[in-house]
Amino acid sequence: MTLALSMTLDDLIEEFDELGDWESKCEYLMDLGDDLPEITPELKSEDNRVHGCQSNVWMAAEFSDDGSIDLIADSDAKIVKGLVAVVLLAYSGHTAQKILDTNIEAIFTRLGLNRHLSMARRNGLSGMVKRVRNIAMSALADR
């Protein structure tokens, strides 16, 4: 398992706290993006494309019998891919209900992302969050 996916959300928050300025955080996001494995070309479909992002982001889900949802996502831009990794850390492997209960804005604020990212980027991030929540909601509806 790669660094990006082996750490916990708390690890990430701790890491971000130590990093300080946006330059260091940007660099760290690029590293996270590097560590996140590339998804297979067939998953980079129009259906899986997340809207609202300035760069291409794709997201798919795998559902386990125990009710947990594994998210698979990728981007063609490195810093965005780092942000994808943050979203996966916050959500992936959780149940649909837990996903819907997660206060993602609080996490983004805790990481300083709301303060540092431009509005266009925050819109992109919201697009990813919306996609995850839609996946969770349809999983609940299917049950």
């Binding site: 300025d21 660099e27 690029m30 760069s55 831009a77 810093i79 965005v80 980027r121």
Partner: peptide, 10 residues
């Protein structure tokens, strides 16, 4: 986008 964001961070 990455380039612009990185430059912004600097």
């Amino acid at each position: 986008y990455d380039l612009a964001e990185w430059l912004n961070s600097k």
